[in-house]
């Protein structure tokens, strides 16, 4: 997923990656992605003792873990409770109060649903949210904290359907369809699903 956001670091000076707790893989991927950005943009000569300059060039990032919306095999009846906790964590992330910073450990589209629902709740209560933000399956980017309250832009949400969905939309996708600003799919057979909202813009994993 991260591979399809090539210009992230130039346009968003602070990036927040939301992963669910226990999904070490995703957190590792986010960190590797940021290291690639750093490696591309940093002049090796500057990397020693010039951290601040480097920071200004490549921006900054957080990887935050939120409580899982639903564990694999968890019963549906207990899901509302765990999902609420997840939404609560996501609201805190969007409002800039990261619940648990983590270098490692997180999973899954249920958590993505919570991220988007949290953004809706935040918007509902009159906050414009970060000046901008984009959320995908498990990724969300936010701009710099300082600029958040200075800009009046409303945050936007983009849902990216899993590459694994070839002919039918996922449950998460169906739930979020009415709420997100854009809905992207990765296989041509899905274009136009969801009442014409689903857009195919090429395979986003590469």
């Amino acid at each position: 997923m991260l591979r399809c956001v090539p210009v992230l670091s130039l346009k968003f000076t602070h990036r927040t990656y939301v992963v669910s707790s226990g999904d070490g893989f995703s957190a590792l991927k986010a960190r590797e992605f940021e290291m690639e950005i750093a490696a591309r943009q940093a002049d090796p000569a500057k990397t020693q003792g010039a951290g601040e300059i480097l920071h200004a060039i490549r921006g900054s990032y957080d990887i935050v873990a939120v409580r899982r919306a639903r564990r694999v095999h968890q019963s549906l009846s207990s899901t509302p409770w765990t999902a609420s906790l997840c939404v609560w964590d996501c609201i805190r992330v969007i409002m800039g109060r990261n619940p648990r910073r983590t270098g490692l450990p997180p999973h899954r589209s249920w958590t993505g649903v919570c991220v988007v629902l949290a953004s809706l709740i935040v918007l509902f209560f009159g906050f414009s949210g970060p000046a901008s933000s984009t959320s995908g399956e498990k990724v969300e980017e936010e701009p710099d904290r300082l600029s958040r309250w200075q800009q009046s832009g409303q945050m936007r949400t983009i849902f990216i359907e899993s590459w694994a969905r070839v002919k039918t939309l996922s449950l998460s996708g169906k739930i979020l369809l009415p709420f997100v600003d854009r809905f992207l799919v990765q296989w041509p057979a899905l274009e136009g699903k969801g009442g014409g909202k689903a857009e195919f813009v090429g395979a986003l994993v590469a």
Binding site: C4, P6, T134, I160, V201, G202
Partner: peptide, 18 residues
């Protein structure tokens, strides 16, 4: 993938939205 015919992929969609 990443072809012009696909409207610049995700980056294009993000730019539109912003």
């Amino acid at each position: 993938s990443g072809d012009e015919s696909y409207k610049r992929g995700l980056a294009g969609v993000m730019d539109d939205e912003m």
